[in-house]
Design a protein around this nucleic acid. Structure first.
Lengths: 340, 340
DNA sequence: GTTAGCACTCAACACTAATGAGTGCTAATA
DNA sequence: TATTAGCACTCATTAGTGTTGAGTGCTAAC
């Protein structure tokens, strides 16, 4: 593809991203000072359409970028990724030394969503590979207790449990055995079948073990891995003025399981940013949306994956810039901490 | 108001709730076999409008109930509140003896939202009155630990913390003092100022106490009190086909703080069901919506408040029926358990 | 007090230009 | 040979214009 075609395609993508209206030859030639007449632009556009970079909503309309067009833009035409001072500032402001990482990401997600009118998604690192360090049972009353599961990367949420008969001593003794049996087991390996097998081998009150096993299972199932922020921002986008178009997307966002699977496959090569545009997403519902995702690590440990979901007509450069900046920011934090 | 007017008003509300179209005199006379001619119905409707029970979208349209009309219907015209077998069944199916109360409410909320195309809201009881039983610190590594706060009604979520220097023994000793100092303090009384004061009086490493205090404060601030389910269901409602109308509502649902305040004022007189219709809600955003809320208790202890939010044109009877049924259901559970 | 009859209102719908942004093609031009 | 001016053509969008039909209010008769 020659230089002129590239310039035209770049201009079309940028104009369309900004205006959401199909771009015509006259506007293009004038606004972007291409130094050629609209007629020439038309010829070039016709070529670009033939090659699949552009699409025409109907005969007498301007052109809009196709998925292939966006892809080419993102891969080859993008001006150097940078971040505006304002955006950087907004992010910096969200961080104070006492901020919890999770909260920080929530705030960042909110911010991105707001400034870009897209949805932000966050996926905590899959704990499946994390390993049980120990399991602690804290009695609250004669019949109640709380289970705390500590793994190598932190702790799962508390899970309450309820015992019928046995004394506190019996329960604590069983809990100790239980904990020992499961130490160093990775979370991903824990199934009902596995637990059943394990507790059969243990000495003590089987009923207590059953409660313990069920509680552990509940605790694992429960940990919250995923959230999405700013779904309503999509309603600001001109392409989603029609309820029929937004509805399935919003419904999907409510059922987080589907979406979190989309993000799951990322192998956290921190520094990498993955972009899937429109139909490139396997999921049919996402055919008009693009997903940009980045994974973050601190002290060589995954902190999570942040993604931005919006219409294919998206400010790729800006979002990529912001995500890259956050990656550097977190790496920076990590270094700072080790230095101290 | 005479009997005939009541019958007419009741018919109008029921028809409008079902069809979402203004109700005309002819339809009314025919469909509800009032035994009088459309002309007479018109006269009565005219009276009802004058008295403020009905409204007319425009001159040549049928009538729709006003807020006052709905209010009168709910208070005086409602046929005996009952629940269909199907609805009761659906609820019963969600409960198994091992179900966690919180999960149960989440499932119930989902169900109600789905069958009624409204939003369900859930507010966990304010823990402000609950009292700290003890605080346990579990060391994970030399620099990390997890705090578990146990109250009289259960436990707050774990909160991780990070220490710089002191040894495990020092930390545990401090934690023990800290726990003792705060035992029997109610959650609502804990402020930064209060904590600062408390830890100053304690012997040991002040830095450790500071971390402990901050962590406790985080844990308290974090507990999730409120969620809403099924926001997208509103998009099914004919009155919300226009993006402009839904958008502010959906945004509001995303910012849960505002809404949870609306629900807060309920003093859990279990058995009572509160209904606020349209403009009766103080909040301007809710002028086209009605809120039906019910509080639940088990073993004389509040379990939470469930609410249904939807257009004023709402199946009041059905929702009230369902909520009443759930109240009975939970009371039933509670009795069953004490018997055992 | 009730009802039939009739004139009137008004949203919704279908139909018909008129407009204008945009294209593709052709022939002239540098 | 690449570029461009010119022109016919397309088609979504908008405004304007009946037409329809559901519904009302009023009056006079029952």
């Amino acid at each position: 593809m020659d230089e002129r075609k590239k310039r035209i395609l770049r201009a079309i993508v940028q104009d369309y991203v900004q205006s959401a209206e199909p771009v015509g030859s006259r506007t293009l030639a004038k606004k972007y000072q291409l130094g050629i007449s609209p007629a020439t632009v038309r010829n070039e556009m016709s070529d670009l359409e033939e090659e699949g970079f552009l699409e025409q909503p109907h005969t007498s309309a301007g052109r809009i970028p196709s998925v292939k067009g966006y892809r080419f833009y993102v891969d080859s035409l993008q001006p150097g990724v940078s971040i505006t001072k304002q955006d950087a500032q907004s992010i910096g402001d969200l961080w104070t030394p006492t901020t919890d990482m999770g909260d920080f990401f929530l705030e960042v997600a909110k911010m991105i969503s707001q400034i870009s009118h897209n949805v932000s998604l966050f996926l905590a690192p899959a704990h499946d590979t994390s390993v049980i360090r120990f399991i602690h049972v804290l009695p609250i009353s004669d019949s109640q207790a709380v289970m705390v599961v500590v793994t190598d990367v932190g702790a799962l949420d508390n899970e309450p449990m309820h015992f019928e008969e046995p004394s506190r001593d019996v329960i604590l003794a069983c809990a100790a055995h239980f904990s020992q049996a499961l130490t160093d087991i990775s979370i991903g390996d824990i199934t009902i079948a596995f637990l059943t097998e394990q507790i059969q081998a243990l000495e003590g009150n089987p009923q207590v073990y059953e409660v313990l096993a069920l509680t552990l299972y509940r605790a694992i199932a429960k940990r919250k891995l995923f959230y999405s922020v700013g779904a309503t921002q999509l309603l600001e986008q001109p392409e989603f003025q029609d309820i029929k178009k937004v509805q399935p997307i919003l419904s999907m966002l409510e059922q987080s399981d589907q979406l979190s699977q989309l993000m799951h496959p990322i192998k956290s090569d921190a520094g990498q940013i993955q972009i899937s545009i429109g139909a490139e997403n396997a999921n049919e519902e996402l055919k008009d949306l693009s997903l940009i995702q980045a994974s973050f690590g601190k002290d060589k440990q995954a902190v999570g994956t942040l993604a931005v979901l919006g219409p294919t007509r998206m400010e790729y450069g800006r979002i990529i810039g912001i995500l890259t900046y956050i990656q550097q920011f977190i790496t920076g934090l990590s270094k700072q901490q080790t230095k101290r």
